[in-house]
Simulated assay, not measured.
Amino acid sequence: MTGGDVPVRVALRTTDMEEARAFCRKVYYEPLRIDPVGDPDRFDFSADVVELGPITVGEVAYGTDIRVAIGALETAYHVLVPLTGVLRSRHRGMVVLADPTRAAVYRPTGDIELDWPGTCRMLSVKVERGALERELDAALDQRLVSPMPLGASFDLVDGPGRTWVALVRLLLAELRAPEGLATQPRMAARWRDMVVSGLALTVEHPYGEEPAGLQGPYRPRTVKRALDVMHAEPWRPYTTRELAAVAGVGVRVLQDAFRQHVGMSPMTYLRRLRLDNVHAELSRADPGLTSVSDIAYRWGFTHLGRFAGAYRERFGVPPSATLRDQP
Rank of each mutant, 00 (worst) to 15 (best):
M1P: 12
M1R: 14
M1L: 03
G3D: 15
G3C: 05
V8D: 07
A11W: 06
D16E: 13
V27A: 08
Y28L: 08
R33D: 06
G38A: 11
G38W: 04
P40E: 11
P40H: 15
F45G: 08
A47E: 01
A47P: 13
D48L: 10
L52M: 02
G53I: 11
P54A: 10
G58F: 07
V60L: 06
Y62M: 12
Y62V: 10
D65H: 15
I66Y: 04
I70H: 10
G71K: 14
L73A: 15
E74G: 09
V79C: 10
V81R: 10
T84W: 06
L87Q: 09
L87H: 14
R88S: 04
R90Q: 08
H91K: 15
G93A: 14
M94V: 15
V96Q: 10
D99C: 13
P100H: 12
R102W: 08
R107Y: 02
R107V: 05
G110M: 11
I112R: 02
I112A: 01
E113Y: 02
L114F: 06
D115S: 13
W116K: 03
W116M: 00
P117F: 13
M122C: 01
S124E: 01
S124T: 07
L132G: 08
S146A: 11
P147L: 08
P147N: 11
M148Q: 11
M148R: 06
A152H: 15
S153A: 14
S153T: 15
F154M: 07
F154P: 13
D155S: 08
G159F: 06
P160H: 04
L167T: 11
L167R: 12
R169S: 04
E179Q: 09
L181P: 00
M187E: 04
A188I: 00
A189P: 00
A189K: 08
R192S: 02
R192W: 03
M194F: 07
M194E: 12
S197R: 13
L199E: 06
A200Q: 07
A200G: 10
V203C: 09
E209D: 03
P211H: 07
L214F: 13
L214D: 01
Q215H: 12
Q215C: 04
R221C: 03
T222P: 06
K224C: 04
K224N: 05
D228N: 11
W235T: 02
W235P: 01
P237D: 01
Y238A: 03
T239D: 00
T240F: 00
L243F: 03
A245Q: 05
R252Y: 14
V253F: 03
L254A: 10
D256M: 06
A257F: 01
R259C: 03
V262Q: 03
S265N: 00
T268F: 03
R272Y: 02
L273G: 12
L273E: 14
N277H: 09
V278C: 03
A280T: 13
S283D: 09
A285W: 02
P287F: 02
G288W: 03
L289E: 15
T290N: 08
S293V: 12
G300K: 00
G300L: 01
G309P: 01
A310H: 13
A310N: 15
L323M: 04
